[in-house]
Amino acid sequence: MTEPLVQLEQVTVEFDGRPVVDRVSLKAGRGDIITIIGPNGAGKTTLIKAILGIQKVHQGKVSLATGLVIGYVPQQLLLEATLPLSVRRFMLLSGQPLDECEAALKRTGVHHLLDASVHHLSGGEKQRLLLARALARKPDLLVLDEPAQGVDINGQAALYQLIRELRDDLDCGVIMISHDLHLVMAATDKVICLNQHVCCSGYPADISQDPAFIDTFGHQVADSLAVYHHHHNHSHNLHGDVVSRTGAEGACNHDHH
């Protein structure tokens, strides 16, 4: 059996003696896309920080594969507004060679912005830049905290599709946090519903019917996910504009059942 990239065993993290992550176990290997969902304050980002090694674990164990390289994408890019910074310079600050940086920017669709100011990028462009910086490290595991933060709905769908493609190209594992329940159900292999502890976990098709999921998100959300199937007859470009299979821009036609 292949060694997991990361394994958490009964991990507990406490703030002021109160558990914000309570006895959480999970395992991710190459090819996995695991999405952590849950209400605000559920401990999702804290759990991610425990995986990254920047948050102390009070109980339990975090095990990483030998030589594991992690590419991390934070919720958003926070920079001093008065600091001039081009995309090229931002990528080079990662410590990776320019050719690796440029290859990563091409893969995420923002290489044409190489000399642009980071401050002038759209929300979708910034998230793709952060993803490119993570890719430049040639990661075994991508850890994404709300990767579609600040991106419109069409751009979100394109971004989640890109994440799946990168998983395939790199043969890496992916652990991500998301609030975009409808989109993420189509983009992930496994869902973990977190509310300090693991309320429920499983395949996207099954998770919406779990009583713990319904308790957390309500019947309305659960019922909408249960009947929601999203079929695209088109694609979206970097800016979220609809592009048909022939490449012409047009209306966004979704079929929902």
Rank of each mutant, 00 (worst) to 15 (best):
G71R: 01
Q196I: 01
R133G: 04
Q220N: 14
L225W: 08
A136L: 07
C200S: 02
E9Q: 15
A186G: 15
L79G: 09
M185Q: 08
A248Q: 15
L170H: 11
A103I: 05
H229F: 10
G38P: 03
S122K: 05
V198N: 06
A28C: 14
C193R: 01
S178K: 01
L170S: 10
Q209P: 08
L83Q: 14
R128N: 10
V62A: 10
N154P: 10
L8D: 04
G38C: 02
V20A: 06
A116H: 14
V143K: 00
T82E: 15
L79F: 11
I70S: 02
K190N: 11
L225Q: 10
G250V: 11
I48T: 03
I175L: 14
S94Q: 13
N233Q: 14
D171Q: 13
L130V: 01
L26P: 11
F213T: 00
C199R: 12
E9W: 09
L113R: 13
M91W: 11
V20W: 03
Y228W: 08
H112W: 07
P74C: 07
F15C: 05
Q10F: 07
D152H: 07
K56R: 15
G60W: 03
Q127N: 12
D145Y: 04
L181K: 03
P147A: 00
L47V: 07
N40G: 06
V191E: 00
L79P: 12
R245T: 10
G67M: 10
F217I: 02
L98I: 13
V24K: 06
G202C: 01
G247S: 10
D169Q: 15
Y228E: 03
C199W: 01
Q76S: 15
Y203G: 07
K190C: 10
C172K: 02
L162F: 12
L113V: 06
G53F: 06
D241C: 05
I48L: 10
S122R: 02
